[in-house]
Amino acid sequence: MSLNSTSHARSPLRNNLLVNIKAHLASIWNTVLQISRDPIGALGLFLVTTIIFIAFFADFLMPYDPNQINVLNRLADPTWEHWLGTDNLGRDSFSRVLIGTRVAMQVAIVSIGLAMVGGIVLGLISGYGPKWLDSLLVLIFDSMSSLPMIMFAMAVITVLGPGTYTLIIVIVSVSIPGYARMIRAQTLSLKNSEFILAERSLNASSGRIIFNHLLPNVVGSLVILASMDMPVVIMLEAGLSFLGLGIKPPDASWGTILNDGYSFIRDSPVLIIAGGGPLILATLGFTFLGESLRDALDPKLKKRGSK
């Protein structure tokens, strides 16, 4: 680049924000395209889109009220009226599975969202803050992850009583340490890098360094971790509900449907399939999508060439 090649073309920076949004949308679209080219990724994308669609429009898709009891028609086999049969109280299983999808998604998305926010905040504090606070937080993270999850969940539920909110509290508190540790590790490796020193040499405040310079550089990997965490959280919700520690019975959840199916497995095997099928599909869908997303976003891990 020679000194004289300065061009005086007006830069497109004036509508910088618009350019920014366009660029982001384009890069998201590119990622989606890249995922759909991978067969596993395409399957994952299809399953996840379907599940999210169902979760959104469950009210319109449900043929019956999921809590409508009809004891005359209990444990019925699938018919054209009841696609997945009915349960031990004569409730329509298909409607219950659909509403259970919404419950599963709500719990998973809310808890992962909260865990991400909490993880980012605690991770940044731990990584950039004073040493004693870091040691304290790491100690807390380590003790949290050393507790057996089910035991911890039972303890919290005993205190707070079962319910959706308790479930979210449990899931958030067991997931935060993982996110926070990851953010902490990245913050630690970045905080002595030259660009942070350069910001400090310009008198940048800690707040500015954390929000404008550390945060944008640490959140990227969190998206992948969160998408890989979805199936874990869905399983956890179903598992706790199955044990009667999560969603409170009359409300439907994949876990409560499974529990009903388990109790009446000699009378109707359909019920256990109705509860377990969507759980398997959701878990697979999010796992496939997560793995494909990781490959798409992190070129270093790309294995496509060897396939």
Partner: peptide, 29 residues
């Protein structure tokens, strides 16, 4: 007193545009 750091690329915040980076000193101060 301002500093120029050793590694020209690593001393620029990677997620910021050059326009923002070179005007940042004014914003900060």
């Amino acid at each position: 007193i301002s500093m120029m750091f050793q590694d020209p690329i690593a001393s620029l915040s990677p997620r910021m545009r050059i326009g923002s980076l070179i005007t940042e000193p004014f914003i900060i101060n």
